[in-house]
């Protein structure tokens, strides 16, 4: 498979830039949105990570 690493690096930089821009927008939204509104979305998002997993072998 021929991968253009130069192009990939460009994409990586663009992705980093966009992620930082997203944080700017997100922080701005948090600041202008009442806690009860943004934290509902936040809690829903965080709660999706609470799925039961089996405990692995212990020492």
């Amino acid at each position: 498979m021929n991968i253009d690493l130069k192009e990939l690096n460009k994409k990586k930089k663009q992705n980093t830039k966009e992620r930082l821009e997203f944080i700017d927008m997100y922080v701005d939204w948090l600041k202008k949105t009442p806690n009860e509104l943004w934290s509902k979305q936040h809690a829903d998002f965080i709660n999706t990570g609470f799925k039961k997993q089996p405990v692995k072998n212990k020492k």
Binding site: N35, E36, I46, G49
Partner: peptide, 23 residues
């Protein structure tokens, strides 16, 4: 000032919002 809804004193930060399962 445009800022998130919380109260900050010298040693305390008071914050009310919906809690997640992680909280």
């Amino acid at each position: 000032v445009k800022c998130v809804e919380l109260t900050v004193t010298e040693n305390k930060i008071i914050f009310n919002r919906e809690l997640s399962l992680l909280d």
